[in-house]
Amino acid sequence: MIKNSVKNYLLPFSICLVAALALYPNSSLNTDLYSTDGLDLNYNIKSDLAMAEGVDLAKLDVFTPHLGKSFEGFKEALAFKESRGDYFTVNTLGYLGKYQFGAETLKLIGIYNPNHFLYNPELQEKAFMANASRNKWILRKDIKRFEGKFIAGVKVTESGILAAAHLAGPGTVKKFLRSYGGYNLSDAYGSTVKYYMKKFSGYDTTIIKPNKKAKARI
């Protein structure tokens, strides 16, 4: 039984070897080229990966970037809340792009062609920075005065102030802070200054420099 099994295994192998030598009579078979000696081989893989069919990819350990409380984290979290990060969207009120800018706000930072703005992601990123810099200049005294304090149960941080200013404008944020939460305006979709102040609290926004005349240019 064993002898027959060995014979059945060696016969096809011998036929293939003879065929290869016949096709390439002048070549010599250098087995060193195919040696695994010295290689660090590791065949220990997860059982669920070994059985590819029916694998639930959502359960696998897939790498995803973690932005945390960095400035990029701030931008992307705010963008996701505004538009789910879509550069080319326009909401029912006509607000544009990834960060949902209105036409009047765009004019303040030097953008007069909303259609060009909508289809230019680089310009949208520049607009976000310019608007944040302008808002930070307007709110610089309030940031210094209120940062670290609690208003209406929310800890005031610079990033929370800037996010709320993006939502409702710096003037509205001033009223919220100086009324100690008594003036809590909401937008057309129900998001309030207080909600943004809390949701976007504690991010690192030191990269944003206050600039009264900030413009978006590429």
Results as ranks from 00 to 15, higher is better:
Lys136Arg: 15
Lys136Asp: 03
Lys136Met: 07
Lys136Leu: 07
Lys136Glu: 04
Lys136Ile: 02
Lys136Trp: 03
Lys136Pro: 06
Trp137Leu: 00
Ile138Met: 02
Leu139Cys: 03
Arg140Met: 04
Arg140Thr: 03
Asp142Arg: 14
Asp142His: 12
Ile143Thr: 01
Ile143Asn: 00
Ile143Gln: 00
Lys144Pro: 00
Lys144Ala: 10
Lys144Leu: 12
Arg145Gln: 13
Arg145Leu: 14
Phe146Thr: 02
Glu147Leu: 05
Glu147Ile: 11
Gly148Leu: 11
Lys149Val: 05
Lys149Gln: 14
Lys149Cys: 04
Ile151Ala: 02
Ile151Trp: 05
Ile151Glu: 03
Ile151Gln: 06
Ala152Trp: 07
Ala152Asn: 15
Ala152Ile: 07
Gly153Asp: 06
Val154Ala: 10
Val156Cys: 06
Thr157Glu: 05
Glu158Gln: 15
Glu158Thr: 15
Glu158Trp: 14
Gly160Pro: 13
Ile161Cys: 10
Leu162Met: 15
Ala163Arg: 11
Ala164Gly: 08
Ala165Ile: 06
Ala165Phe: 01
Ala165Pro: 06
His166Ser: 04
His166Arg: 13
Ala168His: 09
Ala168Glu: 03
Ala168Trp: 03
Gly169Asp: 10
Gly169Asn: 09
Pro170Ala: 15
Pro170Met: 08
Pro170His: 07
Pro170Asn: 05
Pro170Gln: 07
